[in-house]
């Protein structure tokens, strides 16, 4: 007589009922966790805006930092950030795109390619403060660029290089192989195929990658502190455009500077409570800038994806 482990229908139903209850409990738990995390963060952001509200106003944008909280503004900070972002973009875009093109279109599957790829992946995981140490030793002292806009821009360019490279590679890959084959079939060289057919259709993805990289760079504080960004800068770097020949100069690159996240950090660290409002306001603006850039990047990615229908 076989000893069967058959359950009666009633027993099955009871076990099932219990398991389904657990299922429902998990759904509640999951939703709870998800929305409390999101809710908590939303609350913190709203609090930030609320705390900083008293400082919002034209004055805040055009004033230099000051020892009086009510008068301290972010002029030098946002100008500094803008200039630094300019340098960062100018350096990371060509280098990142070129490296991505090499890896996607040219590189053979050999050890050198593997090393480059491993390095790109590895650099994405290096803590940002280590980039600051690198820049301190290399840009500030060895190359002698000093504590300048140039050093800051170069540091952040290296930091976001992996982002630009990965985004560019993905958009290069999205171009169908058939297009490349058709171009090669007509006798095009590798560069002609890349320049005439692959790059033009990747610009959306590349731009998206650049903007995402810049949105990351804009919030980076640690590397800038390490290379000596100061936060009581009551002056602006010299203007690149001047009234006399040659009309364009590069003095601003060598200038000392401050940046938005640095300014916020400085204000947050002050024991004087009045500056907390300044910090909150600066933080809210910084947050808005970051979210805006991300939104733009996502929109560009969406627009470009719809444009070409292979």
């Amino acid at each position: 007589m076989a000893a069967t482990a058959e359950l009666t229908l009633a027993e099955i139903r009871k076990g099932l009922h219990w398991r389904k209850q657990l299922d429902k409990v998990f759904v509640i738990v999951g939703l709870l966790v998800l929305f409390s995390c999101l809710g908590l963060l939303a609350m913190l952001f709203l609090d930030l805006v609320h705390n900083g509200a008293e400082r919002f106003g034209w004055d805040f944008f055009v004033n230099f930092p000051s020892r009086k909280a009510e008068r301290a503004g972010i002029l030098s900070a946002w100008v500094g950030t803008t200039l630094i972002m300019f340098v960062t973009a100018l350096v990371s875009l060509p280098v990142g795109v070129a490296a991505a093109i090499y890896l996607e279109e040219y590189a053979a599957k050999n050890w050198l390619t593997g090393i480059i790829e491993i390095n790109v992946t590895n650099l994405a995981g290096v803590p940002s403060i280590v980039y600051g140490l690198l820049a301190l030793g290399l840009f500030v002292y060895t190359f002698g660029f000093g504590q300048s806009v140039l050093s800051a821009g170069l540091t952040l360019a290296l930091l976001i290089l992996p982002i630009v490279i990965v985004a560019t590679r993905e958009s290069l890959r999205a171009v169908p192989k058939a297009i490349r084959e058709a171009a090669y079939g007509l006798g095009a060289t590798r560069w002609e195929v890349t320049k005439d057919h692959v790059l033009p259709y990747s610009t959306g993805g590349i731009l998206t990658g650049l903007i995402l990289g810049l949105s990351r760079a804009i919030g980076e504080t640690a590397p800038l502190i390490t290379i000596g960004a100061l936060s009581f800068i009551a002056f602006l770097p010299p203007s690149p455009v001047s009234g006399e020949f040659p009309f364009l100069n590069f003095e601003w690159l060598k200038s000392e500077y401050t940046a938005m996240p640095i300014q916020m950090f400085n204000w947050v660290s002050r024991p004087d409570q009045a500056f907390q409002a300044n910090a909150a306001a600066a933080g809210a603006i910084l947050l808005a800038m970051t979210l805006l850039m991300n939104a733009v990047a996502i929109w560009i990615r969406y627009r470009f994806r719809k444009k070409i229908n292979w």
Binding site: A178, A182, A183, L186, G187, W310
Partner: peptide, 19 residues
Amino acid sequence: PIEVRMRIGMVFQKANPFP
């Protein structure tokens, strides 16, 4: 090979015009 491809033409299985 580039020179070869400039003398020999090819039409592929699935039409692949450039966009």
